[in-house]
Nucleic acid binder design. Structure first.
Lengths: 135, 135
DNA sequence: TTTACTGCAAACTGTTTGCAGTAAA
DNA sequence: TTTACTGCAAACAGTTTGCAGTAAA
């Protein structure tokens, strides 16, 4: 039995076709950074009859369940990726659209320090570097 | 004559009431982080008859002219602030909506270093810490 | 007078929601 | 059988745009 089924049950969601398919897409895709539109189109192409509204609902549920993470990069639409234990930030290549992940504990550390200096606690954060190839 | 008039002329925009008023609002407001909606409402309250579409148009023109900077924080609507030479990042208090600016040269430095390690150059970046008061 | 600018309403994009039907448990 | 889930279409928020009128130069 596919692993997805267990993952879904674990978070209290019924095992339905749209959910299994979408979860598979995240696990299959190597880059792993997908928008609702990406997923919707890909499902259409494989002949699956899943509505866009359902894609959004499933993504919201997956995010609430901690299976995936949502990012609001520039450019309007949100993108999602499988949640992983290790936190990381992103570089977006503005020429190619490529998304590169990176981790830097020094930056993480400074962020918490800065918030603390203001008597604040970090609830979430977003660090995106928009980059291009060095000439 | 008000300074705003020169600034507008310098960037090749006619000196009109909506533009002068909006530019004044940015210079007057101490926090300086305003959304289109904020500006529109404030103008209504002072009895100015400026349409929301015009607010958006003016903001877009000001951004193109380099007078102001646009930020896409979480939560749907964009916010704008007067452009300044010194770069800074933002903390957004998720309870109050308050925006706090901060600068950290260590983080800046690391960002460039990380990009360089990948053979990339930073074109732009966005660092936002979503925070709340420490309990 | 000429041309840029404006307000209005209608269009658009990304996302959410109400509802009646459908399928998982 | 029960209840969660689905597709559809309609609603939504933030933003943009076409157009005919208005005001800056």
């Amino acid at each position: 039995m596919a692993t997805q089924n267990q993952e879904l049950k674990k978070v209290g969601l019924k095992v339905t076709l749209p959910r299994v398919k979408i979860l598979q897409m995240f696990e299959a895709s190597d880059c792993g950074h997908l928008s609702a539109e990406d997923i919707y189109k890909a499902l259409q192409e494989t002949g699956e009859d899943v509505g866009l509204a359902t894609v959004y609902r499933v993504l919201t549920q997956f995010e609430a369940a901690g299976l995936i993470t949502k990012h609001n990069f520039d450019g309007g639409h949100a993108i999602y990726e499988l949640a992983s234990d290790d936190h990381h930030d992103h570089m977006v290549n503005i020429k190619t659209g490529e998304v590169i992940e990176f981790v830097d504990s020094l930056i993480e550390q400074r962020q918490h320090q800065i918030a603390a200096e203001h008597g604040l606690t970090i609830v979430g954060h977003s660090l995106v570097l928009y980059v291009k190839a060095t000439e």
